[in-house]
């Protein structure tokens, strides 16, 4: 079973919830940090990252001896990442999406591909024995999605019984790529107008992907009650509320997981995990 923890708005406590769920899930859990632009789960899980793989985009390389400047590559490229001008064929790496069309369609076979590294995958085990992996987008590189895609494809060390994935914030392609194929979307929000606005965006994605969803209200007590009203109206279950507590905020600031700072939350997260599992099982029951 794969649970993706998402939020829309950043900083609502996605990583806090994802890592806490992973920690109560036991040793058969694999936790993936798919927020490749700002990956933080490792700061709370403290894995020993001893696996590493460079990933990126297959970039075309033109053999000038074979190229006839016919322009086919430029014609098929939807990203204008390859251009033929006079007797020169230019490749613009930062525009290339690595689709392979130019290489495949070059009539002279003058194009080959080589990996343009845009990020790295790292993985390892935590002291609790759970498997962890993350992607890191290289600074200055624009495209997060290929890193997430490769992270999803990276073979686990062992078959996990439960996958907990931490999604990036926002509501565009990186979030969609993370949510695709999930069994459940756990949406963490805060009870403020910003939290609600962005929650609606990510609910829209979960609906479009037909993934059942539930909500965690973090920092409960700040703001207003409109998230509750929205969830009731949309039939979205609120599965957990975490009140605004200074000791939790301070603990997280120091890099301590929620359960380290507040072990009294353990039963609540165990109940949350059980509730999600029940919902998923009910969803897929014959």
């Amino acid at each position: 079973m794969r649970i993706v923890v998402a939020s829309g708005k950043g900083g609502t406590g996605k990583t806090t919830v994802a890592t806490s769920l992973a920690l109560v899930g036991g040793a058969s859990v694999r936790c993936l940090d798919c927020d490749v632009e700002a990956p933080n789960a490792a700061l709370f899980l403290h894995p020993v990252l001893d696996r590493r793989q460079e990933v990126g985009i297959p970039l075309p390389r033109v053999d000038t001896a074979l190229c006839t400047h016919c322009g086919k590559c430029a014609e098929v490229c939807q990203y204008h990442a390859i251009a033929v001008l006079g007797q020169t064929t230019l490749v613009f790496p930062e525009l290339c999406h690595g689709c392979g069309s130019c290489t495949r369609l070059c009539p002279e076979g003058a194009i080959t591909e080589h990996l343009h590294v845009t990020g790295v995958l790292e993985g390892g085990m935590t002291a609790e024995g759970l498997e962890f992996a993350r992607g890191l987008l290289q600074v200055g590189e624009p495209m997060a999605v290929p890193i997430i895609r490769e992270l999803k494809r990276w073979p686990p060390l062992r078959r996990p019984a439960l996958e907990i994935w931490d999604a990036p914030p926002g509501a565009s392609c990186p979030v969609v790529e993370t949510l695709r194929g999930a069994d459940f979307a756990l949406l963490v929000t805060e009870p403020t107008p910003f939290g609600l606005h962005d929650l609606k965006q990510v609910v829209g994605i979960a609906r479009a992907l037909e993934i059942p969803a539930g909500v965690v209200v973090n920092r409960d007590g700040i703001g207003d009650r409109k998230v509750d009203a929205y969830c009731a109206d949309q039939g979205l279950p609120i599965l957990l509320r975490i009140p605004m507590e200074r000791r939790i905020a301070e603990g997280l600031a120091r890099g301590r997981s929620l359960l380290e700072t507040a072990p009294d939350y353990r039963p609540a997260f165990q109940a949350l995990l059980a509730a999600i599992q029940d919902r998923v099982n009910a969803e897929y029951a014959p």
């Binding site: 430029a74 990203y79 204008h80 990442a81 251009a83 033929v84 001008l85 006079g86 230019l90 613009f92 525009l95």
Partner: peptide, 18 residues
């Protein structure tokens, strides 16, 4: 033709002008 391009407007415009 590059006015609405998602990216690479400069490349596309240059090809057009050429």
């Amino acid at each position: 033709p590059a006015l609405e391009a998602a990216g690479g407007a400069g490349v596309q415009a240059a090809q057009f002008v050429a």
